[in-house]
Design a protein around this nucleic acid. Structure first.
Lengths: 191, 191
DNA sequence: TAAATTGCCTAAAAGGCTTAGGTAATTTCT
DNA sequence: AGAAATTACCTAAGCCTTTTAGGCAATTTA
C-alpha cells in the first residue's frame, strides 16, 4: 500500500489551510485525515493530540505574521513604520482568517516563550523608538497598539464594520493617522 | 418522578454560569444536562440545538453588558462618561469571562439586529456627542473605541499583560486618558 | 539480504450531538 | 373531582470526534 507521506510539518501546514477555509475552531483531526485520505488514527503517529495540532498551527501563524511584520518594517521609521506594521497585521488577518484566529490560541508559558510572540513585542518597541517615549509611556503604548490592532482586526473579521459607511479601510487609515498623532504628542521633552 | 423544572431561560442562565466557570467554548449540552442531573435528550425540548444554546448565552451577555453600560453612563458626560463606559466593559469581562467571550459569538443578521448590539453602538455615539465630532470622524471614533475596548479586554483575558510591569489597570487608565485627549483634539471648530 | 524502524492500518472505548418515540406528571376542562 | 390534553423528561439509537492499543507492510539501515 502506498504511503501518504505525512509528517508533523505537512499536517500543520494543511491544518492551517483548513483553518483559513473553514475557521480555526472547526479544524479537527478527522477533517485533516479526510484531507489526506488516510485513517484518523494514522495522524496520531505525528501529533500527540488535537491540542498539539492547534498549537502547531498557532506557532506557524505567529511565525508567518512576525516575518511579514519584519519585512514591512525593514528600512522604515516613524509613521511610515507604524502604518506598514499595522497594514502587515491587518492584511495577514484578511488573507488568513483562520491562521489569524490561531494566533489567539492560548499557549502554555513554555511554548509561548519559545514562540515568535516575543518578536512581535520587540517590533512594536522598535516602532516606538522612533517616537522616543519615556517610560512607562512606552509600555502603555505597546499595549495600546496591540489592543487597537487586534481589536480592529477582530471586529472587522466578525463583520462589525461591514454594514455602514464609511468603509473599513478608510477607518483603518484614520486610526493609524491618529495613533501617530497621539504618539507624537507623547515625545519625551528635550533634556 | 419529580421534574427538574427546566426552561429555556433557566438553561441559558445556567449555560452562562458554566461559561464563566469553564470557558464559553467548553459549554456543552451534555455538561448542562449533568448540571441539572437530567438526561441530555431532555434539553432538546427547550433548545433546538447546541448552537441555539450558545446564541442564547450570547444574547443574554449582550443584554447584561448593555444594561451595565447604560447604568454607568447615566448622568455622566465627556471624559467621565468615557471612563465609566470603558470600565463597565472591562469590569464585566473580568467578572464574567465566559459571558464576555459569548458576546463575540457570530449571530446571524436577523438575530443580531434584534439583539442589544445596536444599543452598544448607540451608547458609544452618545458618549461622542459630548466631544462634538464632525462626520465622518464620529464613525471612525466609534470604531476606534470599539477596537480599543475589545482589543484590550481580549488581550488582558488571554494573559497578554500579566507578566510585566506596570500592571494592566494602570495601562487601562492611561489608555482612557489618551483616548479622551485624542477625541478632544478632534472637536469640530466653532462655526 | 536480513534486521530494524517507521507509517499507516483495524479495532474499540468514551464522550458529544441529535432525532424518534414513549411514559409519567401536570394542567385544563367539564 | 375526574377525564382529557398537554408537557416534561425518559430510553434507545445513530452518527461524529478523540484517543489508545496492537498489527502488518513498506522502507531504511547494516
Amino acid at each position: 500500500m502506498a504511503r501518504a507521506g505525512l509528517s508533523k510539518q505537512r499536517l500543520i501546514r494543511a491544518g492551517a489551510e483548513l483553518a483559513d477555509e473553514v475557521g480555526f475552531d472547526r479544524v479537527t483531526v478527522s477533517a485533516l485525515a479526510r484531507r489526506f485520505d488516510v485513517k484518523v488514527a494514522s495522524l496520531y503517529s505525528h501529533l500527540r493530540n488535537s491540542h498539539d495540532l492547534k498549537t502547531g498551527i498557532a506557532l506557524l501563524a505567529l511565525e508567518e505574521l512576525a516575518e511579514r511584520a519584519a519585512d514591512a518594517l525593514a528600512g522604515r521609521a516613524g509613521k511610515d513604520a507604524l502604518a506598514a506594521f499595522a497594514n502587515a497585521y491587518r492584511d495577514y488577518a484578511g488573507e488568513h482568517p483562520g491562521r489569524y484566529a490561531a494566533t489567539r490560541f492560548p499557549l502554555d508559558p513554555r511554548t509561548a516563550a519559545a514562540s515568535a510572540g516575543g518578536r512581535h513585542a520587540q517590533m512594536t518597541r522598535a516602532i516606538l523608538r522612533g517616537y522616543d517615549l519615556p517610560e512607562p509611556d512606552q509600555t502603555h503604548a505597546v499595549r495600546l497598539l496591540g489592543s487597537v490592532f487586534h481589536g480592529f482586526v477582530s471586529l472587522e473579521a466578525s463583520g462589525g464594520f461591514s454594514h455602514s459607511a464609511p468603509d473599513s479601510p478608510e477607518t483603518w487609515a484614520w486610526v493609524v493617522d491618529h495613533l501617530d498623532a497621539l504618539l507624537r504628542s507623547l515625545r519625551a521633552p528635550e533634556p
